Simulated assay, not measured.
Amino acid sequence: MDFHRHGAHKFPKAGLFASSAGRQWNGVAAELRSHPAGDLPAIVPTQMEITLAVRRSPNAHVSRKGAGIRQRTPVESGTIWLCPVGVGEDDINISAPLDEILHIYLPAERFDHLAALYGDARIRADAVRYLAGVEDPLLVQIGLSIHQELIRESSAGRMMVEAAALALTARIAQAYGHDRPETRARPATDAASPDRINRAVAFIRDNLERDLSVAEIAAVACLSPFHFTRMFKRVTGKTPYAFVSEERLKRARRLLTERKISLIDVALSSGFSSQGSFNTAFKRAVGRTPGEYRQHYS
């Protein structure tokens, strides 16, 4: 599924500040856009779209109509719009220019996996309500974490985004479905889960230079991504993203003490896509650039 083609079609006149195209994110995509005033073309989405206003746009309103529902919403920082799968929007108008609007796209399969995990067929992407002006601090927090990674790539950022997408899917299904599932007991904890998480930890440490995904590591542990992320933190005390990021920085610090290894090779061996992103993430975490660290500790 080409999420970015959807964005280009729906927002033909919008500016594009940042995009997840080329980031190899699995099962989630995001775009940071600016929008001029005017009308948008009619569209029927085939994926779940979550839109978040990162910044307030004074005197701006978004008017839209979908599934026969008319909405008019002021654009404040943290304003959220939900556009579910299959809801045709045939009348969208932006009254004034908008800055820093984040669009997050989730495939319908995300909701299918959640439904399979909890055994509830009512959890569907097309069961989410068509809503505007949603006030949900949790959705805002998740959206801003994806926004931060989108504009500034970090170590293990792909894993963080994929874990955030899982949380985003669960929150939307739980809070904004037409038929909210009845409260159910959580799936029973697998007594072998610590051993499974230990296998995942060993796999991570053996593959730090690779572009790891939550789904791949969960498969090593023989757990669903939803169950894996919850169990991983229970066993290790860290999210998968935080653990991978920490392990990559540990490897980088060790490699930097070896003079024969170039800085770009240290970056690639530690799982960074470029020396620039490595420099930024390393200094943010350690307080020194990789070159300064090497000079000080060697």
Rank of each mutant, 00 (worst) to 15 (best):
G276P: 00
E153T: 09
V235L: 05
N26I: 08
R129L: 07
A125W: 06
A285C: 07
E246T: 10
R248V: 01
V220D: 12
A281L: 10
L82N: 00
I101A: 11
L208N: 04
R122W: 05
R122C: 02
I264N: 09
F232E: 03
G22L: 14
L208R: 05
G68K: 08
S224N: 04
T169H: 05
Q24G: 12
T51C: 09
D91R: 14
E292R: 11
Q47C: 07
T289P: 06
V235M: 02
R124C: 06
H6Y: 15
S262M: 00
G157I: 08
L249Q: 03
V140T: 01
E49S: 13
I172P: 01
F11E: 09
T239P: 02
K65Q: 15
L150I: 07
R180A: 11
F228Q: 02
V54S: 11
F203G: 02
A242V: 03
A175F: 00
A252R: 02
Y176D: 02
D120M: 05
I123Y: 00
E76V: 11
S57E: 05
T169D: 07
H178L: 10
Q148N: 13
R70F: 14
A191D: 03
R288A: 15
L150N: 05
S274H: 09
V75M: 15
E89A: 12
R64E: 11
P36G: 15
L223N: 04
G271V: 04
H113N: 08
R253Q: 13
H227Y: 13
A53F: 12
E100S: 10
T79I: 05
H6S: 10
P194F: 05
I101C: 01
V128I: 09
R55F: 06
N198W: 00
S245E: 08
C83A: 12
V201W: 04
E100I: 04
S154H: 06
A96D: 11
A218P: 00
V128H: 03
T236E: 03
V75H: 08
E149C: 08
Q174R: 12
V244Y: 06
I94K: 04
T280I: 14
F17H: 14
